[in-house]
Structures are given as C-alpha cells and as structure tokens.
C-alpha cells in the first residue's frame, strides 16, 4: 500500500469509529435492559454478565405493550389511508392549474405546515370535548390526519406535477370527468409517493407524544409511547423499568429501519428536500 492509501484507510477507519461512538447510547440502552437494578447501581458501565430477561417480563406484564402496539399499527394504517386519499385528491387540481384560488389553497396548506401543534392544542382539546371525540380512536385518527395532511398535499402536488399530461388528455377525449381521471389514471401512479408518505405517517404516529398524551386517557387506547410514559412516570424512574420499556418502545421502528434503512433515509430526505 502506498502512503496516501494508508492515510485514506486510516481516515475511513477513524470515521467509522466516530460514527459508531454516536450509537453508544443505543447499545447502552440495550445492555442496561439486560441487567438487574443492583448490577446497574454497582457497576454503571458494566456489560451484562448473563442475559437477564426479568426486567422484560416485569415490563411486559405491567405495560399492556402488545395492545399498544396493535393500537399504533391500527392508527397508522387509518391515518395513512386518509392522508393519502385526501392529500392526493386535493393535489391533482393544484398540480394542474395555477390561478388565484390554487395559490390561496397552497398558502393555507403552508400555514398548516408551519403551525406548531401547541398553537392549536388548546382549541382542539375544547372542540374535541364538545364533540365527544376525547379518548376515542376517531379523534386521535382525525388529529393525526390533520397534522400530516399539509405535508401530503405538498408532496403529491410536486409528484403529480411531474406526471405527463398526455394520458389525461386521451381520457378527457373519452369523456371521463375529473373524478374518473383522478381515480383511474392519476391515483394508480402515485405508489412511490404514497410509500414515502406512509413513512412519515408511521414515524409520527409511533413517536408523537403530545397529541395522544392530551387526547387519550383510557389505557386500552394508548399508543406505544403513551404506554411507555404511563409505565415510567416522571419521578424516580427506576433503571430496571426504564431500559426495557425504552427498548420495547423503540424496537419496532429500529427493526424496520435495519431492514429498509436505505429506502427510509432516501425517503425521509427526499420528503424534506421537496
């Protein structure tokens, strides 16, 4: 090996090491979850001597974990379908026409995109209470749909804008109306955009905390994060409860990430750059 080659190899090895150091907290979380509370207090940095699963047994029996996983999956699916349908339908005219009305709509969508949830949380709580939507699946699904919809409209508008118009023109000559063109011609082409969008929805439904914390109160409706939070509480969090709950809370998305990492990184980044 020549000198520059060796230097380049060393630099890359150093980079890999630095990047892996960034993962230490994740390894730390997993390692600690497999040790007893006494072991953690005695040796805060030790590795597990043996694989002790007692913490997981306790956490699983007290957390209603599986139920919350099922809730999160169900809410994710419902929100994805709603957001994809409403968003793509709204985006079709926005992508094809430019006039005062479409500009106004795009401005309103941008407003929705920029509004932090804390600005609307108080009135939404009051509205939901008056409509009896507090602590209901329908309420949380509507709230998440509204939070994701502005992004979806933007996303589909730029995606549909790139679809050639020839197909539609042929259909229009065959006397198809706008709805038929959207449903039979545009919608089937949206697969890749919907895949990326579903990623955003999944990340939000699994990881968002504020909305479900304020809108859901009965344990059998909790999403995963609320179930983790209600299990651990705020004061005197015990390590033998904290770490297994943290692992269980992040496990589903981490597994998905290991499998689809390339597509997830590309999708989330593309969504941001668009």
């Amino acid at each position: 090996m020549t000198l520059p080659r060796i230097a380049s190899f060393a630099a890359q090895a150093a980079m890999v090491c630095i990047v892996l150091v960034m993962l230490t907290p994740v390894f730390y979380m997993i390692a600690m979850s497999l040790r007893t509370a006494a072991e953690i207090v005695e040796q805060p940095l030790g590795l597990p001597d043996r694989l002790y699963f007692g913490n997981y047994v306790n956490a699983l029996s007290q957390m209603a974990y599986l139920r919350s996983v099922v809730n999160s999956i169900g809410i994710t699916l419902a929100v994805t379908v709603l957001v994809a349908f409403l968003g793509s339908m709204a985006a079709y005219p926005l992508a094809r026409r430019t006039n005062r009305f479409t500009r106004l709509v795009i401005m309103l969508v941008a407003l929705g995109l920029a509004t932090p949830p804390f600005v609307t949380i108080t009135p939404i709580y009051v509205i939901f209470r008056n409509l009896g939507l507090l602590d209901s699946y329908l309420g949380i699904i509507l709230a998440f749909t509204a939070l994701n919809l502005p992004l979806a409209v933007f996303f589909y508008t730029s995606f549909i804008g790139a679809i050639p118009k020839e197909l539609e023109e042929a259909a229009r000559l065959d006397n198809c109306n706008d709805w038929q063109i959207y449903w039979y011609i545009i919608r089937p082409l949206l697969g890749p955009a919907t895949a990326t969008l579903s990623l955003f929805v999944t990340l939000m439904v699994w990881n968002d905390f504020t909305y479900p914390l304020l809108l859901l109160t009965s344990p059998e409706k909790f999403t995963v994060m609320i179930s983790v939070y209600r299990f651990l509480g705020n004061l005197n969090v015990q390590p033998d409860q904290l770490f297994p709950a943290a692992v269980l809370g992040s496990l589903p998305l981490l597994v998905l990430f290991v499998i689809f990492q390339r597509r997830i990184v590309a999708g989330v980044t593309a969504g941001a750059v668009k």
Binding site: Q12, L23, P25, N207, M225, L254, F257, V265
Partner: peptide, 29 residues
Amino acid sequence: MPAIRNFCRAVLFTPAMMSFVVVGYVWQF
C-alpha cells in the same frame, strides 16, 4: 469516503428513528 458513506449515514440516522420519549428517558439516566 464513498466506500463507507451509506453505512455511516444509516448509523448516524438511527437515533432519529427513536421517539423523544425514549431518547429523553435514556439520556436522563
């Protein structure tokens, strides 16, 4: 560093897959 680019990008991205709640608890400890 094209040889290690994708690997490092994925590793750096991993914490963004976790929720604020989990990250908050783990770092609190």
